[in-house]
Amino acid sequence: MTATRRTILLTGASGVVGNALLQHLGHHKVVCLVHNNAPEGATEHVRGDLTAPGLGLDPQDRHRLAAEVDTIIHCAAVTDFTAGADATRDLNVVGTERVLEFATESGAITHYVSTAFVARTDLTRSDVGEGMADPSDYLETKRAAEHVVATAGLPTTIIRPSIVIGDSTTGAITKFQGLHTLIRAVLKNTLPLVPLQPDAHIDFVPQDVLATAITSLVDSGTSFGEYWITAGQNALTTSTMIELCVEVGSRLGLEAQPPRLVNTDMVDRLIRPVFINPLPRAVRRRFDDMIAMTALFANASYFPSTLGDVPGCAPLSTDLLADAFTRGVEHLMRAQRLGQFAEEAA
């Protein structure tokens, strides 16, 4: 059955999720709301500002779009944990309010892309030390934005992906994420320890899987519900991911040594005061940033997963996740000229 062709207003088109969506929504008319330059692959775009009244659109553009748009996919968000509370709230909460104002005017269905990490309410650290990364600002604003969406009285869905990695087949991704930083550190032997248990589950979803799920919700005309696009109980463990990093690195010319896995209590009681505090400030800051990030996974329960409830989608298997992760490591090494790829570039 052919999906009804829709006119979609897409925010955040230059981000990882938005860019992946552009590759899946070709059977619809997609108008990208951009602040600066249009992303590659965008066939139509309008300039605006998510935090401004009327989305900062030229009145003529706004009137035209309100008459044409029947679907909104709202991906734009501040995801940088160092951005600060004010900038994060402006885009993540105020921007969502502005989008819903436009949805009221246009009568469009709104698909709001949130994060599965809204479920991790008790795992952010109140003390980030000398680090600059504070996940609490991001998570608080995503929870607030979800409340705005849920209470708007409009046709809306809330989509909660876990960490988004590259394409499951090629590993390619528009912009490397925090997880890639850790992978590179393992490959380069610059990460002697990771404050996680070996059996801690690191939930991620390939970008094409997420884009397929969102596209399916659009195609089916779904206008309500909450969707957890996650690996759930099949998420890979810390030890499995490190083993895969080491295996890929070795196969492609890097002899990586697996870092030691320790619990956070040991970090606070022994490792930081004895080994970290004497180091230069820049090193201490990077260490505290890592602690703030990994706290979201330490002692965490599984995310819910409702990927199988999305029309045409199925739960992610451990084998598929392991293959996708492997492709991501290979892509990272190729893009950053690590191992044998450094020799090929020389």
Rank of each mutant, 00 (worst) to 15 (best):
120 R>M: 08
245 C>H: 04
232 G>T: 06
194 V>M: 11
314 A>M: 11
143 R>Y: 03
335 A>D: 07
255 E>I: 03
210 L>H: 06
338 L>F: 04
293 M>N: 06
160 R>K: 14
88 T>D: 10
174 T>Q: 13
341 F>Q: 09
18 G>V: 02
73 I>A: 09
96 T>N: 10
329 V>H: 12
277 N>F: 00
110 T>W: 05
35 H>G: 14
151 T>A: 12
105 E>F: 01
286 R>C: 11
274 V>G: 05
54 G>Q: 10
331 H>T: 12
59 P>Q: 09
159 I>V: 14
59 P>I: 11
105 E>D: 13
277 N>W: 01
224 F>W: 06
226 E>K: 11
33 L>N: 07
187 L>E: 09
165 I>N: 09
15 G>L: 02
291 I>M: 15
210 L>M: 06
38 A>M: 02
264 T>L: 08
344 E>Y: 15
14 S>T: 07
39 P>A: 11
180 H>T: 11
178 G>P: 02
149 V>F: 06
102 F>E: 05
249 G>F: 06
36 N>R: 15
272 R>L: 00
146 E>M: 11
148 V>W: 02
137 D>T: 10
255 E>F: 03
1 M>I: 13
275 F>R: 04
185 A>Q: 15
228 W>G: 10
30 V>E: 00
105 E>L: 08
274 V>W: 05
188 K>A: 13
221 G>S: 10
46 V>T: 08
44 E>H: 13
1 M>C: 09
123 L>Y: 15
168 S>Q: 12
19 N>F: 00
190 T>R: 15
329 V>Y: 13
78 V>H: 03
340 Q>P: 01
149 V>Y: 01
329 V>E: 14
165 I>M: 13
175 K>E: 10
303 F>Y: 14
40 E>K: 03
313 C>M: 14
238 T>M: 13
68 E>D: 09
293 M>W: 07
47 R>P: 04
179 L>Y: 11
106 S>K: 05
234 N>I: 08
267 V>K: 03
114 S>L: 02
66 A>P: 00
291 I>W: 03
141 T>L: 03
267 V>Y: 05
304 P>I: 02
292 A>L: 12
193 L>V: 08
128 V>Y: 08
58 D>T: 02
157 T>R: 12
132 M>P: 01
287 F>R: 02
138 Y>H: 05
325 F>A: 10
58 D>A: 09
333 M>V: 11
282 A>G: 10
32 C>E: 02
27 H>L: 09
68 E>H: 09
297 F>G: 03
211 A>S: 07
203 D>F: 10
77 A>S: 14
135 P>L: 06
162 S>C: 13
168 S>A: 12
249 G>Q: 07
252 L>W: 05
44 E>T: 13
204 F>N: 03
20 A>F: 00
247 E>W: 07
300 A>L: 01
178 G>Q: 07
181 T>E: 07
166 G>P: 01
12 G>H: 06
51 T>P: 00
64 R>P: 05
139 L>R: 06
258 P>V: 07
143 R>M: 08
27 H>R: 14
209 V>D: 09
324 A>C: 09
320 L>R: 07
173 I>A: 12
316 L>E: 08
300 A>T: 02
23 Q>N: 14
125 R>V: 15
316 L>Y: 12
315 P>L: 01
336 Q>H: 11
284 R>P: 04
99 V>D: 04
170 T>G: 11
101 E>A: 12
244 L>N: 13
66 A>Q: 02
